[in-house]
Amino acid sequence: MTATLHSLMPDASTREFVNRYSLAPHHLVDDRLRASHISRQRGDGLEFHQYRPYQSGDDLRLVDWRLYARSDRMYVREAQQESRLTVCLLIDTTASMLIQDSNGRPRIEMAKRIAAALGWLAVHRQHPCMAVAFGPAPSAVLQRGTGLRQMERLCHWLDSLAPDEGWPTRATQHQLMQAIPPRSLVIALSDFAAIHDSQRGSWRDLMSQAHALISVQLLVAAETRFDARGSLQIVEPESGVKRLVDSKRVAQQFPGRLRRWLDAVRREQVGLGARYVRAQTEQPTNDILAAALSEKRSADARLLVAP
């Protein structure tokens, strides 16, 4: 670790907190994905798994000669080969991530802090770690790497992220698709909103690349209620489109619309086999991390925020 820590580098308490967790993809993938991308492989790793009868062609070095002496049969030691899934942090960098929470901090700041903490956990657990930004900036990819140097690179890369108006071009989308390796744990940090219909497919395809998926939907408190009065100008940050609405009419329909939208996001993410976590950026970072890294397998969403 360098003498001067990057501001995004998790502090000691956060590191200690996330170190309790492991990135266990077998809790996360659904049956379909697990069938094709089983994460545990038996092999010649260090951790003993089981004995099996010797077969022709097996390496003689794997034969347990003591057991042979006792039983007069040849058994081969089979060890569990630990998964080395790549942890891919997929961060939404569209303009809506600039929306500020009640503390005046843009949503992207919380996404960066969570990404840094998860990156630390990946490094700590010796997983290769990489990061991809889903935004208009081309080739926003941090290449896969390991160790503390990768952690430093991740912090600098996160620091450089600047959400902007617009959407990734097709070329950028293709690059992002190519960047995510097949055996990877994708952790998506986004508001899952304003993904335009034409972009929704690519966002979904991007997450479908994952061996396993954790989707963290970051909301700000102001998005979960509507208490404005009078005429209001609604501004869509991605497109810059403005329109006037009557608050009274919007207020009547807002709770139902919010509930339907959150349900739709949850269904979509669960359908992709994701652990879906909904959180408010005003919450403590550790609470959000705990929800995302929970060992409990749940097909349903873990609701940190009641709509």
Partner: peptide, 27 residues
């Protein structure tokens, strides 16, 4: 006063007011 207020939202579909153009013109 209300018309001057701006609300930047991630999902503008939640704030759609079908009658807005007519209401706005009237206002």
């Amino acid at each position: 006063r209300g018309a001057r207020k701006q609300l930047i939202v991630a999902n503008p579909d939640l704030y759609t007011d079908e009658a807005a153009p007519r209401l706005v013109l009237q206002r």
